[in-house]
């Protein structure tokens, strides 16, 4: 693809590989992998890091009480490493969003979802059900995201 780059990410243990794509024309550093994205992906993979990330009060505050989550939503996904890890972990529905700048941003998300699901033996039928890509810019009505999450 002329304006979408392909990359490989590997977790700290070196055992889990994720392919991610970036739209080279995305503004606002959307064309780079953010450290926080990699850091969250790593934290989602390890139970002790998950506990630390969600905090001791997560449960009483109505936060994550089950793993994998039934429905997850990533804002400003970009490379969408956390969403890819959530698909691998078995989250029911993963909604990936990014703001509307160009079509490539969403193509890149679909490409990542396709490649990684194939690698993890998630059928195309299952992927279409579980991995949802939606455009979302701050301030827009969130109703469509709630619908996308089922």
């Amino acid at each position: 693809h002329p304006t979408i780059s392909s990359h490989a990410w590997t977790d700290d243990s070196g055992s889990i590989a994720v392919t991610y794509h970036l739209a080279l024309t995305a503004p606002g550093h959307g064309d780079t992998l953010w450290n926080s994205s990699s850091c969250i992906a790593e934290h989602l993979l390890r139970p002790h890091l998950r506990d630390r990330m969600f905090g001791p009060r997560a449960k009483e505050a109505g936060g994550v009480t089950r793993w994998p989550p039934r429905r997850a939503l990533e804002f400003g996904a970009g490379a969408a490493l956390p969403s890819m890890i959530l698909l691998r972990e078995g989250a029911g529905t993963v909604v990936m969003t990014d703001r509307i700048t160009n079509e490539e941003t969403f193509e890149a998300l679909e490409m990542s979802s396709e490649k990684n699901c194939r690698r993890w033996d998630i059928s195309e039928e299952e992927r279409e059900r579980r991995a949802v890509v939606r455009a979302h810019t701050w301030g827009e009505d969130a109703e469509k995201l709630l619908e996308a999450g089922g």
Binding site: W34, S37, V64, G76, A142, L145
Partner: peptide, 20 residues
């Protein structure tokens, strides 16, 4: 949603509350 992810400056507490 059981889980919301926002990697960095995009985090917005208003959304967090509205969507949970």
């Amino acid at each position: 949603f059981d889980l919301l992810v926002a990697s960095d400056c995009i985090y917005n507490p208003t959304y967090h509350e509205a969507l949970l």
